[in-house]
Amino acid sequence: MLTGRSEDFSFTNGGNIVNTAFIVTQAGVLVIDSGPSRAYGEQLRRAIARITRQPVVRVINTHHHPDHFLGNQAFAPDTLAALPGTIHGIHTEGGSFNDNMYRLAGDWMAGTEPVAPTLPLAAGPLELGGHRLELIALEGHTGADLAILDRSTGVLFAGDLIFHDRAPTTPHARLPAWQASLDTLEAQPFRHLVPGHGPVATDAGPIRQTRAWLGWLDHTLRQAADEGLDMTEALALPLPAEFRRLAVVDAEYRRSVGQLYPALEQQALRTGKARE
């Protein structure tokens, strides 16, 4: 596994804020997420080559966010795979994500173009070189979030459904669905948990941390909208002390308000109408 920094995208980190991973099997290497840029994907491929002579036979994108698929160019096109919703997301939003990454990470992005996987994945067991993998199709962080449980080793690759010691991002989030996905993940028999962002854990701590943040965010913003707060007032609400230890929590709260509050405001206006 390659651990990214718990930061925002920047010219300094070149977008390396994400965790990517690979599993070496007798039948080749399976890569889980390809990183934020062509350069990252190429480095990942070289890192794999230093460890094994096995070829990369499968590259899976857990979801369609740019830091999870923009390294796809470094790999053979016919190895790229994802859930159908992820493939669709990369087709429709990949270009604008890519443009945005150039703006946020600068030269690190040189030569990067979005490449959508052609191989659609379905939920269920996947056997590769003696590894018994389970593909778990979930949603909530985006419309299609894939988690992968390696039953042979007890490692659960959770993608961005789990953030650990870093505040979750919510540009495509649907919070109730996300919460349900967390319950599914917590029920899996894992020994190691690999979050999309933040350090690996050996217990369900990161799941509970993500659940606590999403629960607080959902409750707080709903209540704010129902009380008629303006967005500037919602932005000024204090964050509970328990979340202060999450990296980039202030910036993510600000972004989440911008992403989630408009729909809640509109709902509050509709509610008001129904009561009249």
Partner: peptide, 18 residues
């Protein structure tokens, strides 16, 4: 147009409008 009026704690009302 959708709208809703909220009473303000300090008196008066707030109108939100879309």
């Amino acid at each position: 147009v959708s709208s809703r009026v909220w009473p303000k704690k300090e008196g008066g009302e707030r109108l939100r409008l879309r």
